[in-house]
Design a protein around this nucleic acid. Structure first.
Lengths: 158, 158
DNA sequence: CTAAATCCTAGAGCAACGGTCGGGAAAGGA
DNA sequence: TCCTTTCCCGACCGTTGCTCTAGGATTTAG
């Protein structure tokens, strides 16, 4: 399992905010009901999204949450990292503040580290997939029910 | 963290077996020493690799482990899946015996599942990176210290 | 026989996950 | 002013998985 339900629930939440971005603020209660997710758990997740400046909140009655930016300007990598922490394949990766990714296995036994080579490829694969997908795409997908622009399998069963 | 140390240690182990594939069977003790890894933990990991037909074992004195196939015929996806279980981005993915990947969120609230769309892309990114790398590449890398045949960044620091 | 090695099971210690609970603070409406 | 709605925050808790150890049983070379 690469990701936990934090990412799953959090992304569902973001998609729901994207779908209702024309309306006013959306309350967590309504999202918890329509998505059938535990409210008190969602509160923790949305707090991470707020701290990452992905959503804004309005307190009080008729309050709720809104996307902080248009859905088209939100890369899913930001969302997933806000929820799950840095997306790195292995402990030995440290994400520097500037976005660099380094591996601390350099001074290993003999100075080389073959696994680093592998994890670099994996890291690149997952981050480019996440960076290359915007929230807007997911909102569009959820609205149209299906968009098979690339002809790939979109889970057509059996 | 996408993967645990099971993958890290297990891949290190496989690379070591690949490096010494001309010699006879390699004992876990020697690998544990050169790689500085806990021996009794390695025993569990190598058991998974053996059950996945990636290594063969010889018992008794002078025994040890060998690659079951040439390193060039071993995709790293096999190795990682043997160690970590099915590589799926999310709980709702189920890997069928035939290799199909499906998502069970179909009968959700309204029949669509936008997150599935995202996890499909992530899954594809990770598995293609792992499938596209053979053990032989890692062995070569560890021998030469670096092979930049594709010009990509091979973690040249700072 | 003995030492070297694989094999197997059981479990301890710890952290993370998934979720609950209780309460507090802000904002709007009556 | 008071009440309701809603966000906000920290503490807690059961389960699961990870990492690693312990102890033994089995096999084989010398």
């Amino acid at each position: 399992m690469l990701f936990s339900t934090k990412a799953e629930y959090g992304v569902r939440l973001m998609v729901e905010l994207g779908r209702q971005s024309d309306r006013g603020p959306v309350s967590l209660t309504s999202i918890a009901e329509t998505e059938n997710l535990p409210l008190s758990y969602l509160e923790h997740l949305v707090a991470k999204l707020r701290r990452a400046d992905l959503v804004t909140s309005t307190r009080g009655a008729q309050g709720g949450y809104r996307l902080a930016r248009p859905a088209g300007e939100i890369e899913m990598l930001e969302v997933v990292e806000a929820l799950e922490g840095p997306v790195v394949p292995m402990e030995c990766f440290h994400e520097e503040p500037e976005g660099r990714v380094q591996c601390s296995h350099l001074g290993d036994t003999d100075g080389t580290c073959a696994t680093k080579f592998l994890w670099m490829r994996v890291h690149s694969g997952v981050t480019s997939a996440l960076r290359g997908t915007t929230l807007e795409e997911l909102v569009e997908f959820s609205r149209s029910g299906a968009l098979r622009e690339d002809g790939s399998r979109t889970a057509s069963p059996a």
